[in-house]
Write a protein that binds this DNA or RNA. Structure first.
Lengths: 361, 361
DNA sequence: AACGAAAGTGAATCACCGC
DNA sequence: TGCGGTGATTCACTTTCGT
């Protein structure tokens, strides 16, 4: 589909997040990253859904009003995010213990399906000065799909590759945004109080989008999401209420040089690779009818037929079906089970023949 | 005050958690640790790559009709906990992304004051077998005071001493409960599906109680809370609905020999060794996608991808895998094989970048 | 007895395409 | 839409088995 025809791509939209979201077309973005305000002191700016002002009576009522107002605000912008998100898209939230529980419940109540919570472990957190609590050394991200049965993209191989060929875990160790990466004004003061590190967004966007996808950030702030999206060859839409932040973010993002396209290909997952039927190996003569296949331990031997089926004892069928039959297993990946017995008696995994052909395009 | 005069101390009370809590006097316990059902909402069975079945938590006690039912249950037992908790006491909850957001919101709505969320990082979590999500490698604890202005106990010095004289952080690295610590029946099957490690409770109880304090666990299960409380010289009250679990927990707790009061030494939790994946260098910008790597003799050149994999001819994979492939060697240490080709054409060994980052550990 | 290989296991919301 | 076939997918640690 012609995603993006009506979308204000690669721009920072200055305005109220909910109103601006309402102007975007439905099911139009592949991923959303949201770092909403969580300082409940901002409640003065928040209104009830009916736009009445919150009127504090006593402590008990005040506390309830605070959370209720925050919850109403959260559900309003999350509802719009869900409308704008494609059915196969995913959404990320980040928060601390002050607000992240409210965010998670709102997500679940609105029909999002949580896929993971992810812990950003800070290598250099601020110490606890008064010694009255544990050092608050992490923030929590929530990753969610549009709904329970929605398909979604998870670049498993890319994440595994980022982590030295081990599955990426749900706890990420990443430093705070400091030093040259931190935006500052002329006086050297930090421009934005909660600028997120680019390394965090690098991992987020690499995990769930592909080049060309559209990434939305409804609370753009200093623009980290846009900067990393641009560097990784993704399109973005940023929404920011504060004109000063919006201008700084736009300057920052435009100064980014995207990576070479060739460097963005990364590790294709096996699911995405072109499917090569076993028959092609026989047609091309890499495997000949009559050749013997065996498993790693040479426990079973099968003979290749001219139609690329296998024969092993009385079992007949595909490399997968016969592999499953001899092992008495419910299923089997024949590609990684069977080996060709070569002329010199050594074994070569079928999957290696397939990889050779895959290189042809 | 004469805490404990009316309390059923150092016993396991068999019964419904809410009813049993209602029979306890108000403001009578110093700390509560609660490990409620997680409401996992599992569908169908999950097979490992070797076709064996994952032994999931599908017990009746973990099934709820919907979130509203779970929320109502949660608020009911938390309300009783708050009544039973002393004004200067604190409460710990543990959960996963399935339920922990509901727990946190219930806490806040009932007037508890969250002090920290704490991440239990598992050293040996179960992998994600289908490659569809991040490895779920942690659980979340919430630590809360009775109310916003309540005094509470935090044994700052003890926690600091447990952590090599650095402030204890909010992320804890502790192994699963396995091996000899795991309770088993005669057939060798685990007695309880979710037995928590004693190291976790050791840290929890040491952080917020003193010897002689009363610790309550409304979902005692296998009895870890009672066992650690007894070993640390704390009194306890356990509530457990299942008579089988309750009996096993009581046996377990009675078999514990309390520590000498003098010998309340630190947790022997294994220290985490530093392991820096190559991907971290890419995320942090020390190596950029598109950069060229070469070996010492400049025989082979590879290009870095955004996911930190290498591309060299048709070979793709980790720095180790591609290093091995080009040399046609069975293995290769990519850190000491590949060099970055720097702007001026000179080479810099990857391992030197890693050593720079290593200091952060 | 010692050593190495193989099997077992842990709170899990764990495919997808084509007909 | 439902069904069937293809084929993708695991880390750290403990225990047991075999030589």
């Amino acid at each position: 589909m012609g995603a993006g025809l009506d979308l204000p791509l690669d721009k920072v939209l200055v305005g109220d997040c909910i109103e601006t979201l309402r102007a975007l077309p439905p099911a139009s973005v592949h991923a959303i990253f949201a770092d909403p305000p969580y300082n409940l002191q901002l409640r003065g700016e928040l209104l009830r859904p009916n736009h009445s002002r919150v009127d504090a009576v006593d402590d008990e009522w005040d506390r309830f009003a605070d959370f209720a107002t925050y919850d109403a605000f959260t559900r309003e912008w999350l509802t719009e995010c869900r409308r704008v998100l494609r059915k196969d898209g995913t959404l990320w939230l980040i928060g601390s213990y002050h607000n992240v529980f409210r965010l998670g419940v709102a997500l679940q109540d609105l029909g999002f399906w949580i896929l993971n919570d992810v812990i950003w472990r800070k290598s250099n957190p601020m110490p606890n000065f008064r010694g009255r609590r544990f050092t608050n050394a992490h923030e929590t991200l929530i990753w969610a799909a549009h709904s329970q049965d929605a398909k979604y993209r998870f670049n498993y191989a890319a994440m595994k590759s980022l982590n030295d060929d081990l599955q990426m875990r749900s706890d990420w160790f990443i430093p705070l945004c400091t030093g040259a990466e931190r935006l500052r004004d002329e006086a050297g003061r930090k421009l934005h109080p909660t600028q997120k590190p680019e390394a965090l967004l690098h991992r987020v966007l690499l995990s769930c989008t592909k080049p060309g996808d559209v990434v939305l950030d409804p609370f753009l702030g200093s623009g980290t999401t846009g900067a990393v999206a641009r560097r990784l060859g993704r399109r973005f839409i940023g929404i920011e209420r504060d004109p000063g932040y919006a201008a700084a973010a736009e300057r920052r993002i435009l100064s980014i040089t995207p990576h070479d396209e060739a460097a963005l290909v990364g590790t294709p997952s096996k699911r995405e690779q072109k499917r090569i039927p076993f028959g092609v190996l026989v047609e091309r003569g890499l495997i000949a009818p009559g050749d013997a296949l065996t498993d790693r331990h040479r426990r079973w031997t099968a003979t290749v037929q001219a139609d690329a089926s296998l024969a092993c004892g009385t079992a007949r069928g595909s490399i997968h079906a016969v592999g499953a039959a001899v092992q008495e297993a419910p299923s089997c990946n024949g590609w990684t089970f069977w080996h060709l017995v070569q002329r010199d008696g050594s074994l070569r995994l079928l999957d290696l023949f397939r990889q050779e052909l895959g290189g042809e395009g």
